[in-house]
Amino acid sequence: MNSTTAFVHKEYEAEKASNSYLMSLIAIMVGLPFPIINLLATFIFYMAHSKKSYFIRWHCTQALLSQLILFFVNSIGFWWTINIIYLNAEVSSAYLIYLACLVLLNLIEFIATIYAAIETRKGKHVKWIGLGRIVDAIVTK
């Protein structure tokens, strides 16, 4: 899932960058059923650090983007589930497959986030496959 490259910077940057990943994990405790809560938490953190150094902004953006992807996937799952519970829609096999993919994706993201939080805390520049390139393009030096 991840590829790392050595990156030189200062101690305080590592802590703030690592916290950006923590945001999405902490918010899980508050708003597990609501996909938007995690997104909001990372977004507030991102906004608060939009004037900080490149390393911090880079990791805030990666955390934000990963939550954005999860938000779309989870929102669909959330409303689908609501429809089934309250409107008595049919539990189709498509729904079950979607749910399985959703859980798998969340699990992967969860592990990757913990990994990224630990590694950035040590000062390593963790780039996720695929997502890292997009972040490179978005964040200006």
Binding site: N19, L22, M23, I26, A27, V30, G31, I37, L40, A41, I44, F45, A48
Partner: peptide, 9 residues
């Protein structure tokens, strides 16, 4: 949510 994020900010 904001309150919790602020603990870190």
């Amino acid at each position: 949510v904001w309150a919790i994020v602020d603990w870190f900010i």
